[in-house]
Design a protein around this nucleic acid. Structure first.
Lengths: 200, 200
DNA sequence: GATCGCCTTGGACGTTTGACCAAATACTAT
DNA sequence: ATAGTATTTGGTCAAACGTCCAAGGCGATC
């Protein structure tokens, strides 16, 4: 059967997706053009519309692939662990390797933004994030957290915000944050519900 | 002295900045063009380069103005309050009015991203965010928080992530999060530092 | 009413963009 | 070899882009 020709095609398609993954982070979603994309992938610009319906479809596909890869890797890490609290901290320290300006972090944020203006991308991202939140909620439930759902939402939002802020504040590090993150993942309800009436 | 002519100029300049503020959120930073900008402002496109050195300079100016307005308003709210914990919760509920897809929220995130690729914008944003973090840290110090700086960083990152996530997860609401946010703003160090050895 | 200065216009420029396609190429199957 | 299928090329197309500028408008000043 026809294979070598098809294999070359698959390779070119894959190189286009890789180039898109890189360039979205480097230049920004809207600044990626068919021509820069083709140059990075080592092909001619005409190929883009042979393998994909449109430039947007290519970017969508590349971004969802990468986000899925990142989230599924992390959620597998959570599923196989005994103490979710520790693993969430480990996730935080993993985040430390990104400086907030690298293509990997930026691709994530770029995709969030693009999703607010692209219905199909939004649906894909919603599904992926919902899956990950479910994993995180289950891990927190397993460890007996009193509010697993709220904690999962909060941790997710915080992690993304953390990446965002590291772009501006290079001094921001996981070390300073870890003790406070522990407050969130703590399985016991805090005794002090509020310190009201604490006038100056 | 010449006033009417100058006043007209000021008005046109202001309308251009307003249009930029709106369009950055609606279309995305890189999708704002001189022509759409001029149309929204009710002027001809040539005016953009009369009042500003370049399109990027206009966008930069508009974005920094708006971010400053937002942050200074919120930090004034913190400064005049007696119980920072409550005010941080109130800030959270204020955030609830944004659905995460409105121009105001998006302008914030768009500016973050643009700042990673524009040195001048990055410096401006860094300064504004640093100022706000200082206000927040002071408020937390005043209320006797044991780790005011780390808590401020965490709350800032979380708030931005919260806005980001609301674009995808419409069910995300401040109500569910508030009890856990209280764990962060609590002035007492948590007794339970960690719940290790919690194997199944 | 002529002059001056600032604001505004409308169009021009060279580039880049997404999309499209006929022709060329590479490989398989007959 | 031949025909057939899939991939790749190289170029064209109209549209949109940022920037620039000569000319016109318009109120204040002389």
């Amino acid at each position: 059967m026809g294979e070598t020709s098809i294999e070359r095609g698959r390779s070119a398609r894959a190189r286009l997706l890789t180039a898109a993954r890189e360039l979205i982070g480097e230049l920004g979603w809207n600044a990626v053009s068919t021509r820069t994309l083709a140059e990075r992938a080592g092909v001619r610009s005409g190929l883009v519309h042979y393998h994909f319906d449109s430039l947007q479809a290519l970017l969508r596909h590349a971004a969802l692939d990468e986000v899925q890869r990142m989230l599924e890797g992390t959620s597998a890490l959570l599923a196989g662990a005994t103490s979710p609290s520790d693993d969430i901290e480990r996730m935080l320290f993993d985040l430390d390797q990104y400086n907030g300006s690298d293509p990997a972090s930026l691709l994530f944020v770029e995709t969030y933004l693009a999703a607010t203006r692209d219905h199909e991308l939004r649906q894909g991202m919603s599904a992926l994030v919902a899956d990950f939140r479910r994993s995180l909620t289950e891990a927190l439930t397993r460890s007996g957290h009193p509010r697993p759902q709220a904690a999962a939402s909060m941790i997710l939002a915080f992690f993304d915000g953390f990446v965002l802020h590291k772009g501006l504040d290079q001094g921001l590090s996981a070390e300073h944050i870890a003790p406070l993150l522990r407050r969130i993942t703590n399985t016991e309800e805090s005794r002090i519900t509020n310190t009201e009436e604490d006038g100056e």
